[in-house]
Design a protein around this nucleic acid. Structure first.
Lengths: 203, 203
DNA sequence: ACATATAGATACTGACCGGTAACACCCATG
DNA sequence: CATGGGTGTTACCGGTCAGTATCTATATGT
């Protein structure tokens, strides 16, 4: 039940402004050790600064947490956009790319599941600012997936989207509770089976 | 970022021995507020006893946490056994019963996901005693599900079991991040679609 | 009635938490 | 050269944390 009170100073972008260094380091430590398991002092220290500067940029630890999650959410949105521009007018390819990218995340040995979902688990307080961020993110994620399934001309796009969404969400949370040997291939197979089950009838 | 430091005394089985009262109350508080969010003092108080007695029965808070999770795991195993005796020699019915019971849990407004999975998220420390409990539980759960799918004569029982397992795991973790309106019916439909997709060919 | 074991009560330890105050510093702009 | 904003440093605050020592009370079995 120990908390992280000192962390190795992280050397990314020594020249970056403190706010960015703090956010970068906080993302690392929050994800790896859990939000409640990291003290603000450890974050400041690892970012090569101190608590006072941290509190000049963030009103509170909760504020820092919310910003940490907001950044992750926006990165995920960028990933969607990136896939959209890489495979323009090919929603099916975007869907496949999303699936394989998610599977890669899950297969990584240092993956600890979805940081947003973890935050919701760690911070049950109903009014916590982090919870709003997570809620909006997950809802938007699902919407994008539904839209993609629909654009791909698949049957019952909302059902398929939920199947895929929940499958991968479950895989991410399960991967940190059990071994993940050969999980990747199996996941891709499951996902593609689901997709082809919603293939409109040829005629 | 506040922790629970005083809780309403819970009146279940005033006569029960302190160890049981402590475990009952700990289960409640750990689940609702998160493990790291509950102090041992609050548990002892809510159980109508005090910290000293708690520490006479448990070596440490981590020990109490591990026992809390072990009890949950054994309750889940009992549920499997109960379904087996209720529908003897009918694995298909046991599967359906498992699905609907899980969906009921997920639909409950006070559901906060799988307590075991939440514990794994909250306690990232690799050697934490709780992690072994969670790992063994999830593995056993998956094995039982595979065995059931196989006994039901379904195709590729391990793939189907994983699909169902991950679908529900994902649903439990997602339900606390988003709204769950009409999620229940959809889940049952998805599960049954998956099952029938593995139906052996009629001949 | 006595011995023993279990439980309750209170107070304490040392450590860590999130957050703040006061002050010295550096470096750019005027 | 002056001035002022962002930064670093140190010390501190009240509060909570897990865990322990000590002593009293109660119940049980003989």
């Amino acid at each position: 039940m120990s908390t992280v009170r000192s962390a190795v100073k992280i050397d990314r972008d020594e020249r970056a402004p403190p706010r960015e260094r703090i956010l970068a380091v906080a993302a690392d430590l929050f994800y790896r050790n859990g939000i409640r398991g990291v003290g603000v002092e450890a974050i400041a220290e690892a970012a090569g600064t101190n608590k006072m500067t941290l509190y000049r940029h963030f009103d509170s630890k909760d504020d820092l947490v919310a910003e940490y999650l907001r950044r992750l959410a926006s990165q995920a949105n960028s990933a969607w956009d990136r896939r959209a521009t890489r495979f323009p007018d090919d929603p099916r390819a975007q869907l496949r790319a999303w699936l394989t990218e998610m599977v890669e995340h899950i297969g990584a040995t240092d993956d600890r599941g979805c940081a947003l979902a973890n935050a919701a688990v760690e911070l049950p307080e109903p009014g916590h600012p982090a919870r709003r961020v997570v809620e909006e993110f997950k809802t938007a994620q699902r919407e994008r997936l539904i839209a993609l399934c629909a654009a791909a001309g698949l049957n019952e796009p909302d059902m398929l989207a939920d199947e895929l969404f929940l499958l991968l969400e479950g895989a991410r949370v399960t991967a940190q509770c059990m071994g993940r040997e050969r999980l990747g291939d199996r996941l891709v197979r499951m996902g593609e089976t689901m997709i082809s089950a919603h293939e409109p009838k040829k005629r």
